[in-house]
């Protein structure tokens, strides 16, 4: 009995957006009296950081400081419609909606500033620090706060914008499957190294080395969070997790985390990754989406690594110790 090492890899693509489209998200943006901007949505942040990246996208589009952007989401009485957070769709859909709303609000803001400065809108630019000035003449300027105050109390104008993103529905042809199902495709390739104990059947993942192509990253720290979390979930899927341990039988269904075993922090190996950015044609600033794909490449990579280590051909997940030992038994039986 021994510990055998193997390496495997897998290449995957992943679609952005609800399959076949028809899944809009809207955004409203307005300035407060003191020049802050409120982005109103009803999108759901599941912990992945939606509120943070929508603030970044709004600040970038408006040309104002990030800390002056407030994201208010999660109330159907006040927030315009969002189809929901799923299908790696929210950065793409909500991001595009925020760009549209923020661009309209920016235009309204610049019109007020132009009136105050007695110049034309085309001559103005923002410095990203809370000021609007004439291009090339930084001293001819007005602050965003002063502009918003003037709009409210002197000129009686609104500084606001409306945004929506919709990929129009593309029905699937029932005969051929012809359809335009997605907005863009992200890509991943993961190399997994494993060590298999041939006595216990236990598999240890020693490391992941992956490349991910996700379009423009809105927030590289949050992308890395998805990558590591996704690899972690993929490891659980590949090696441990199921609600039906003796599928298709329904017996022994786990009911807690004592019996539904998932990888713990100590099981998590190093995750080396490189992130490539090939712009999406229609994503916000070229972003594609990273939410779901990151779980998918580690799973076949681990299974391929186990098969490589043992010289077997396992074709099911999870590859529990029992599956490993049965595969080794079968290999031994075939050899005799």
């Amino acid at each position: 009995m021994s510990k055998l090492r193997g390496t495997g890899f897998a290449a995957v693509n992943y679609p952005t957006g609800m399959h076949l489209g028809g899944d809009p998200t809207q955004s409203l943006v307005h300035a407060t009296t003191s020049g802050n901007f409120v982005v109103t949505m009803s999108s759901v942040d599941l912990g992945q950081g939606l509120k943070t990246i929508l603030a970044q996208i709004a600040a970038e589009t408006l040309g104002v400081p990030l800390d002056t952007v407030i994201v208010d989401t999660g109330d159907t009485d006040t927030g315009p419609h969002c189809t929901g957070t799923f299908a790696s769709r929210t950065t793409h859909r909500a991001g595009n909606a925020v760009i549209m709303a923020a661009a309209e609000a920016r235009q309204a803001m610049l019109e007020v500033a132009a009136e105050k400065l007695e110049v034309s809108v085309e001559d103005l630019e923002t410095d990203g620090q809370g000021n609007i000035h004439v291009k090339g003449v930084e001293e001819k300027a007005i602050s965003v706060a002063e502009t918003a105050g003037a709009a409210h109390f002197e000129l009686g104008k609104t500084i606001s914008g409306r945004g929506i993103f919709l990929k129009t529905p593309s029905p699937m042809d029932p005969e051929t499957g012809e359809s335009d199902p997605d907005s863009t495709q992200a890509h991943a390739c993961t190399v997994a190294e494993v060590e298999v104990d041939t006595e216990t059947g236990n598999v240890e993942v020693l490391g992941f080395k992956s490349a991910y192509e996700v379009g423009q990253q809105v927030n590289p720290a949050l992308v890395k969070g998805q990558i590591v979390g996704g690899a972690w979930m993929g490891m659980g899927h590949a090696l441990q997790e199921t609600t039906a341990p003796y599928y298709p039988a329904i017996d022994h269904a786990p009911g807690d985390f004592q019996s539904y075993v998932m990888p713990g922090a100590a099981d998590m190996p190093s995750v080396e990754c490189e992130v490539l950015e090939i712009a999406s044609r229609n994503g916000p600033f070229g972003a594609k989406g990273v939410g779901e794909m990151v779980t998918n490449s580690p799973i076949p990579a681990i299974v391929n690594a186990i098969n490589n280590a043992l010289g077997v051909r396992i074709t099911r997940i999870p590859v529990t110790p029992e599956v490993v030992l049965r595969a080794l038994d079968e290999k031994a039986a075939n050899a005799t």
């Binding site: 950081g49 943070t52 603030a55 970044q56 996208i57 600040a59 970038e60 990030l66 990203g128 423009q216 990253q217 809105v218 927030n219 590289p220 720290a221 949050l222 916000p284 600033f285």
Partner: peptide
């Protein structure tokens, strides 16, 4: 601002 590792 887009592309920066802004804190959650």
């Amino acid at each position: 601002i887009v592309g920066q590792p802004v804190k959650l």
